[in-house]
Amino acid sequence: MSPDDWHLTEDLEDFLARAGDFLQSRPALHTVPLTVTEALRTRGADAYGADTPVFGLLERAGAVRAAFFRTPPRRLTLTPLTPEEADDLAARLAGLGQVLPGVNADHDTAASFAGAWRRHTGALPTLHERERLYRLGTLTPPEPFPEGRGRVAGERDREQLMLWHREFVTDIGGTPAGDNSSWADTRIAHERITLWEAPDGTPVSMAGRTPMVAGQIRVTPVYTPAHLRGRGYAGAATVEVSRAALAAGAAEVLLFADLANPTSNALYQRIGYHPIADFAVYDF
């Protein structure tokens, strides 16, 4: 194979027509490409406040073997690749003069591409984050369960959701958007954020979920303000949103956890999530 075996396009419909079945063949491992391309299909590039998205696929013997997407200015996201495939893609993108801020993929693929990108461009990769992907088995509410109740976020919660989303993005090392009102409006309209309320009705934690694509729903984001942590609120919100995902008919309910946070990883396993793959994010 050669770098030219990679087909690049800015046409989402063309990409999905050719790579859609491949992405849906492994819905858990491909959860991010599936959910991002679905958002782009239904809402356009404004879904991510991005410049023109770029997509790519690798075909071999008439079948798609791998794919990628990028919503600038964000990092490149890859499906699993062999080291040779990662090197060929790096060579192709470097040859086109692409400037990448980083890569996000399963651990081995991300490491292979980061090394290849350094060879082809001289850019120094720095490990930004390691994540673990979990799949829900039997949902098991934690003990003790905090007092309060879960409810779906509505229009009256709009300002709260916008604030918490900005705080969440900052917590994970991102840069909050200047205006995240569309993020809140979309999730309110489609009832995709669950709040956990204290007994007095005060929201104390939130957990969101993606739309269902290829039978999978991913729980994201999960956020509790710093001064309210350690009281079981995040676990309660995650249980409630997981129930909502199951009620919506999801065959697989997934979530990512930062491996630098042992508390959240232990929590998700206690409530029934099982690890299935490790991912890595590199900055260049």
Rank of each mutant, 00 (worst) to 15 (best):
L195D: 03
E38Q: 13
F55K: 03
L228D: 03
L89Y: 08
T202E: 14
A67T: 07
A66Y: 07
L254G: 02
F113I: 10
E147P: 02
M212G: 04
T263G: 07
T220L: 10
R70G: 01
E13D: 15
Y223L: 09
E155G: 13
P101E: 12
H128R: 15
Q98I: 03
L89W: 03
G148N: 08
R92D: 00
P53N: 01
T121P: 11
A45K: 13
P72V: 00
G137M: 08
W196F: 13
F168H: 14
V222D: 02
E84N: 04
G208A: 03
A198E: 12
P80E: 12
Q269V: 04
P199D: 00
P33K: 01
P73W: 02
P275S: 01
N265L: 04
R166G: 15
H107Y: 13
G178V: 06
V239A: 06
R65D: 13
L96F: 07
Y48F: 15
G56L: 02
A111N: 12
H190P: 05
P83Q: 05
L96C: 06
E129V: 11
V204L: 12
F256Y: 15
P176Y: 05
V103K: 03
V64Y: 11
A39F: 13
H107W: 13
I217S: 05
S182K: 11
E155I: 11
R60L: 04
R209K: 13
D185W: 09
T138M: 12
V281Q: 10
V36D: 03
L12T: 08
A114P: 12
G174K: 02
L246D: 03
E10S: 13
P101R: 10
G235N: 07
S181W: 08
L139K: 06
P27G: 05
A61L: 08
E191Q: 15
L23W: 11
L254P: 01
P33R: 00
A17M: 11
